[in-house]
Each structure stands twice: as C-alpha cells, then as structure tokens.
Design a protein around this nucleic acid. Structure first.
Lengths: 218, 218
DNA sequence: AACGCTACCAAGCAAGCGCTTGGTTATCAA
DNA sequence: TTGATAACCAAGCGCTTGCTTGGTAGCGTT
C-alpha cells in the first residue's frame, strides 16, 4: 500500500489528475512518453487492440494510425507481439498507480472498496486507462514468456485489491471475491453503455458494491 | 454438441443424462448428429476454438482433427465463420435445454438459482457443453448478421436466467444481476482449476450463490 | 565538413491464410 | 446396370500477413 515507486518519489499529490500521474511515471521511466514516436505507436496499438482485437489488427493498421509505413514499426519494436506486451506492461503500471492514488484518498474500508470498483470500471469504460480491457481479452495472445513479465507487474495491482477486499468485509476468501469481481467488471465492457442506460459508472459501482457486500461490513 | 463419450462423466445427477438430451434434440432437428461428418467437424471446431481461439485456428487444423483435407470442409460449410456460427447456435440450444432440465428439477427459488449457477459452471468447465465459453470469448469474431441469429436463440436462455433471479431474491434488477453473474462465471474459465485448488464446481457454485445473494431470500 | 543517430521510406519476400476447382470413390435406390 | 448423391482428394489460386532489407533525409555535435 505504501508506494515505494516512482510515483511517490516524484511527489504526486493525492488529487493529481491523470496528466500529472502520467508525467510522473514517464519521468520515473515506468511509462513511455506518449508524445514520442514509440509512445504514439503504443497508444494507437492499444486503441486498435481494444477496438478490433489483437489478431484482427495488422501492423499496417497500426502504422497507418500514426502515419508511417508498416515496415517502420520494426524500428521501434521487435515484433507485433512485443507491442502487445509493452502495451500490457504500461497499462498495468498506470492502472496500479491510479488505483493506489484512489485508495489512499479514502478513509473507510468500504469507501476504499468502492473506490477500487469505480477505478476499475473507469479503466474499462472511460479513457482513464486506454487499453485496460486487453489485459483480459487478449491475455492468451501473449506468449508464455511475455505473460510472465506482465504478471510480475500485475501482482502489485492484485495484491492491493485483495488487501482492500479483506479489509472491507467478512469475505471468507478475498482472492475468490477478487476473481469473481474481476470477471463481473471486465464483462461489463460488453454490455454497459452509459448513454443507452440511465446508469452512470458511479451508480454502477454502487450497485456492484451492494451486490457483493450486502451485509455491509464496516 | 456433446460428444457421445463425454456424457457418462457428467451424468452424475438425477434425471435424464446428457446423452438422452442430445438424442432428443438431434431427433427434433435442433442439433446436428455428433456422429455425422458435419457433427464431427462441429465438435472438432468447438474444441479448437476453445483451445486456441477462433483467429488462431485454421481450417487446416479443423480438417486435420477429423482426418480430412482442408478443402473438404467447404463441402459441409460455406465459410469458416459459418462453422463458428453453427457451433454457437448448437451450443446455445443445448445449454438452454440442459438448464431448463436442471431448473425444473428444483423446488425452491434459491435451489433453482443454485442450479443455474452450477449448470453454467459445468458448461464452462466440464465437458457438459463443449464450446460454451466461445459464446463470450469469440463473440466479436462473428459478423453482425450471425450475431443476430445466435442472439435470437440466446434470448430464451437469458430469459430463463432472469426469471430464476427475479424469483430467488430481492434483486432490484435481475438483468443487471445476470450480467454481473455472467461475467463472474465466464471469467472463471481463466483461473479455476479443479485439481490445483481443492474446490469442486459444486462448492464454487455455493460460494458464488452466497456472495451474490447473501441475504438468502427464499 | 564530417559524423553519428533517430526516424522513416520503398520494395518485397516467404509463409500462411480461406477458399475454389475439377475429379474420384463408395453407397444405395430404381 | 445405371444414375444420383454424399464425402472426400489433389492441387493450387489469390490474397494477406509479419517481417526484412537497403537506403535516405534531417538534425545536432564536434
């Protein structure tokens, strides 16, 4: 929970917007500068992977998105899969930093759980963490070695979730609760449409919270 | 979609086993005979789609699985996507019939909900409904027209779920509950391993039930 | 002016893809 | 015996894919 990473070192205040958080992570070398050619490629790839899926996105698509030719991509990345891997790494890093920030702001255990839920929902649906859904939907497109790399980064994120869950209620098994929650939340990408339903992300987070923690501990 | 040999294992509960159900549906023209060449192709395709995903499965893979050459597939199906579509249609048909059977056996609302959860878990993890996970994981691989076809069949399955949910507790919104539940259950495909954890599907169903319906209506 | 470096282009290769074509074999009914 | 039909083979076509190669324009440094 105590951020011993570049975020804290860079002095990111609790209330900093996404722009500042990104800046801090870029400065700490944990994220690629989104204004660099490489960063632009990563962002374009993330968007396309979300939109069409990894297999149906070609390197020509990605290249066209940033206005270069397909071959030029391989000046920046060793392979198409390396792009996916790096996207996942950076998405994970950013999502974790963002959730740490959100959790720190809350005082009550239940408030922290709600913050986590909302945080992940925003990552899935908003533009808060572009490419977040890929972590689930394209997981099997990664080679086992790449999976290990991402998993190592992911562990901190999941650890935070589990701590918050364990604090927030009398769940027999926080790890199980997290898994069910992750499935429920990530699947919402397939049906939640903020305009069509009259349901904001914040309200949805509340509904999820009340379903998963009815007895309302703490 | 159930192979004739997969039945014996899963027919532990009371009532008609899967074999009889498949037979009845085949006789009714709702399912392709799994022993026909076309049926064998559908089964092989379903297995491969689950295992490697639709995009990474080639028609040559499917053909090799049943011992024919790739070109011969197109004697039975118009396109690769038509295979996916048909797999999804038959999986949906079978899963619905199976769940109706399971629900009818139960007397209490809570028992019916539990039966639905277990039923879907068995569809996801067991060999009860091979290819069930594709309905979620490969949904976007279908063309819009094919999606409509499958959706029409799916509607009955979802309707049944919603009725059971509405009966089983004081959920404000059965449709929302179903969606969260569907995400949670289908995601379990990515982490649940019956051998590694000491957790049976039946126990998992119980855990899910108690998390989602804590106040224990009915 | 010469260098080194980053970022990119132009062209295309080898492999793999879904799918087509024309023909062969086995089965079975009339 | 003939003819129809289902099931499949053998060969390969046209296209797309990820990726490679060799070269160049621009820029800051020395």
């Amino acid at each position: 929970m105590s951020g011993s990473n570049a975020v804290a070192k860079s002095g990111a205040k609790s209330g900093a917007g996404s722009a500042e958080l990104v800046q801090a992570l870029v400065a700490g070398g944990e994220l690629t500068d989104p204004d660099s050619p490489r960063g632009r490629l990563l962002n374009a790839a993330a968007r396309l992977f979300v939109e069409k899926g990894f297999a149906r996105t070609t390197v020509r698509d990605i290249a066209a998105e940033v206005g270069i030719l397909s071959g030029s991509i391989f000046h920046h990345f060793r392979s198409k899969e390396a792009i996916l891997c790096q996207v996942m790494r950076e998405v994970t890093t950013f999502a974790r930093a963002r959730m740490e920030q959100a959790v720190t702001r809350e005082r009550s255990p239940r408030g922290r759980l709600r913050a986590c839920i909302l945080c992940e929902l925003e990552a899935i649906h908003g533009r808060a963490v572009p490419g977040f859904t890929i972590l689930v939907s394209e997981w099997r497109s990664l080679s086992p070695e790449s999976q290990k790399q991402v998993l190592r980064l992911r562990e901190g994120y999941e650890q935070l979730w589990r701590e918050v869950l364990a604090d927030a209620g009398r769940m027999d098994d926080p790890a199980l609760a997290r898994r069910l929650l992750q499935g429920a939340l990530s699947h919402s990408y397939n049906w939640y449409r903020p305009k069509r339903q009259g349901l904001s992300l914040d309200e949805l987070a509340g509904q999820v919270l009340s379903l998963f923690a009815r007895q309302g501990a703490a």
